[in-house]
């Protein structure tokens, strides 16, 4: 077994590092010039809906100095059909592993979009975006465990492709939503989507974003994400967790793994450094060698163990 090889359910990935949905264009094409896309654990596509979406008016982002950024893109995407025809062949050509992210406003939207791809064999998983804060009703499915249960079980009924659910941190207790998904047979949980935030322009005296609030991402949300990964892993140690939230370097990634994540996704860091993900992969490899791990999978959840020993560095 390779050092970084990782399994989520029965699916094996080259390494645990993925590009997060919405941070690599529609499907990573713009990153291909910087490294081979097949060096990644996988690419999670932009959230795709059954019909194309134009997205929100501008400004769509605002930097929060030192902390990250707020976005309100509004799920601009060319639709699932366009993706399959125009972008998927490129991913195949690159020999890249892909996870298709699906979004909908209604249960029926999710079903129709998944129906379109349910029999394809190119996808390592379907990630359901249950948690976009930037569209009407975007959060419904991840703020109510029953609704989360319904959408996951309906999708599980129609496809054999493993299903991941991307959950929102904008809840009182994320483990309740996680439980709804687990009861419905989810294969993995992607934690977390952006945190709802807001910024005001002191000159116009109005919110910066036309839709008032937006999704907060970047270094500032890492502790929030880690706490949610921790709690979910503690309650449901048998459900694989994909950790997401402010991961910018291998150290951040290692924290997520120790907290309970099996894999991690790189999001906003891609904006600042197109090579962030690939640098993280080599950083993880270094860490494994230095700490004499035989497999990165040994890290998952270790922070929960009693009597942890500080690692001795190999010289």
């Amino acid at each position: 077994m390779q050092l970084l090889e990782t399994k989520v359910g029965n699916t094996t990935f080259k390494n645990p590092v993925f590009l997060a949905s919405g941070t690599c264009g529609v499907a990573g094409r713009e990153l291909a010039p910087y490294f081979n896309l097949n060096e990644l654990g996988g690419i999670v596509t932009k959230s795709l809906s059954i019909k194309p979406r134009t997205g929100n008016p501008t400004p769509r982002v605002i930097e929060i100095p030192g902390c990250g950024m707020l976005n309100s893109i509004g799920l601009q995407n060319p639709g699932i059909e366009y993706f399959v025809k125009e972008e998927l062949p490129f991913l195949k050509e690159q020999n890249a592993t892909s996870v298709v992210n699906i979004v909908g406003e209604t249960l029926d939207d999710y079903i129709q979009a998944v129906d379109y791809i349910k029999n394809r064999n190119e996808f390592a998983a379907i990630e359901l975006n249950l948690s976009c804060p930037n569209v009407e009703s975007g959060l419904d499915f991840s703020q109510d465990p029953k609704k989360a249960f319904t959408v996951v079980s309906e999708i599980k009924k129609i496809t054999k492709i493993p299903v991941w659910a991307k959950l929102s941190p904008n809840v009182t207790d994320i483990t309740q939503i996680a439980k709804g998904c687990i009861d419905a047979g989810i294969d993995a949980l992607s934690l977390i989507n952006t945190v709802i935030g807001l910024a005001i322009n002191k000159w116009t005296k109005k919110p910066v974003l036309p839709r008032v609030s937006g999704g907060y991402s970047g270094p500032a949300i890492k502790p929030i994400a880690l706490r949610m990964v921790w709690e979910t892993y503690k309650k449901f140690p048998n459900t694989p967790i994909i950790g997401i939230g402010g991961i910018h370097n291998a150290d951040d990634a290692i924290e997520f793994l120790l907290c309970g994540a099996t894999c991690i996704q790189i999001g906003t860091a891609n904006f600042v450094n197109p090579k962030a993900s690939i640098e993280i992969i080599s950083g993880l490899e270094d860490y494994c060698r230095k700490t004499k791990l035989s497999s990165i999978t040994e890290l998952t959840g270790q922070a929960h163990l009693q009597n942890q020993k500080t690692v001795q560095l190999a010289h």
Binding site: E30, L31, F271
Partner: peptide, 16 residues
């Protein structure tokens, strides 16, 4: 010119 996060086409912020 539009407010830009990435500058290379992945974030979909600087649209017009």
């Amino acid at each position: 010119e539009e407010y830009m996060a990435c500058g290379y086409g992945v974030c979909m912020s600087c649209v017009i």
